[in-house]
Write a protein that binds this DNA or RNA. Sequence first.
DNA 1: AGTATTCATCGTATTATTGCGATGAATACT
DNA 2: AGTATTCATCGCAATAATACGATGAATACT
Lengths: 108, 108
Amino acid sequence: MGVTKTEIFTAEQNRVADLAKAFAHPARVAILQMLATRQACVCGDLVEELPLAQATVSQHLKELKRIGIVRGDIDPPRVCYCIDEAVWQEARHVFGDLFDSLLKRTCC
Amino acid sequence: MGVTKTEIFTAEQNRVADLAKAFAHPARVAILQMLATRQACVCGDLVEELPLAQATVSQHLKELKRIGIVRGDIDPPRVCYCIDEAVWQEARHVFGDLFDSLLKRTCC
DNA sequence: AGTATTCATCGTATTATTGCGATGAATACT
DNA sequence: AGTATTCATCGCAATAATACGATGAATACT
């Protein structure tokens, strides 16, 4: 039905899925890479460097803010977008734990 | 348009996005956790443990196989699903490198 | 042959996502 | 007041994803 039954999964599973969504679109990967590797927050420069319309970039940023991995500090009329370091580390640990959970298999 | 412009992003960005998609739905997270932590591959037991219809689980498995992180070894009439360890490690490194790329910020 | 088991796929309905033009809000600068 | 800049949001169109019932293919067991 296009509707995800979030209520039947654990909070942890839903959080992993949400954090993964931040990286589940190449445009958002590009945005996160830009924000992570710049000395300065790029603000609206994102639109210039990405071959996407301003409205589209704004929407991806909105999704990243919803997840929490990006903050938007207003500095009118600009907005300075930054990685939220706490959420970034949360994601690192969540995925790290997940990847570490692989056990040796006895079949296949 | 609901159409992702994959051609305007790097192969690496598209690969990250694809791997992230494996974890971008709580049902797939649950499936991957089950496959990663069982001694034996659970095959069709997935359907029993998940509150989803068999057709839905099969579709999630199809997506995981498309990405490559899961293999389906047929053992008629059963199918034994396993984590593909090589792809699992690929994902670990891809995300590890990404999370390590965060630099100290001088703004915000 | 007939039946049961296991799983994939098809068809369908519904919702989500992606993308962009247009518009609007907020601010700064003349 | 008038203009420019920056960004969010609305509205729309098109595609993707989620979910499931029904059906079919393959195999095993009677």
